[in-house]
Design a protein around this nucleic acid. Structure first.
Lengths: 113, 113
DNA sequence: ACAACACTTCTATATTTATGGAAATATAGA
DNA sequence: TCTATATTTCCATAAATATAGAAGTGTTGT
């Protein structure tokens, strides 16, 4: 993971419609959902949804596959894990893994300046 | 955690300069760093840095405190944990906790539609 | 009070991003 | 092949965001 990719991925979910889409797919499991199903569930116009799905795909946070005339979108769990790991990397100068449910804030060593 | 706050927090780190600032603070530990130190480390002009620090503070991902004539900024680890938990909430229909180092992708149950 | 320092606010400009209707493309059943 | 369905691309418009110099505010030491 590098900073450009991390920013791209974070930008892709730093938007209400896209975060809803992403969370829906995270919760839906590996099979994912067809675009029309997402549109209906979240009440998003087709062209707007398509724009957002493209952003998420481009960032690598979701995958897609065609199945007959539907296109199924699904969360890329490996990418999500990689992003979260990047955010917490070397937390508190490497004293602890910070998240989730970290104890980092109570026990740490300081970074010397 | 609600979607508006999550988007605000994600937006605050979905920008290269701010992600660098945030990661520097995550790694620096609870004492944090004075603004001038951050500016020098990351080569960011004072006014630009101030703008970014305000964004991160407003989102709640960092805290600040005045100490003599320096203002120390530090990561808010609780907020970070809360955000990461929100992203992985009910991952794979609640079958597993997904991140980090999840096994969610290999063992899961599907969300019924 | 004054000077040096640390940081923020103001301001203008440049750039990026989001929205959704209309048209285009792709798939599959009759 | 014709038609319905599923999704994407095109396009114009609207809105939000990033940048950094200049000026302003607050703090400390003399």
């Amino acid at each position: 993971m590098n900073i450009k990719s991390a920013v791209l991925q974070l930008s892709s979910i730093a938007q209400e419609a896209r975060l809803e889409i992403f969370r829906l797919l995270v919760q839906a499991g590996a099979n994912g959902l067809p675009a029309g199903n997402i549109a209906e569930t979240l009440k998003i116009p087709a062209s707007t949804l398509s724009f957002h799905l493209k952003e998420l795909s481009h960032a690598g946070l979701i995958n897609s596959r065609q199945e007959s005339r539907y296109i199924y979108y699904s969360a890329n769990y490996d990418a999500m894990d990689g992003l979260l790991a990047y955010l917490t990397e070397n937390c508190c100068a490497g004293a602890k893994v910070c998240a989730p449910n970290s104890t980092c804030k109570t026990e740490q060593k300081e970074l010397s300046l």
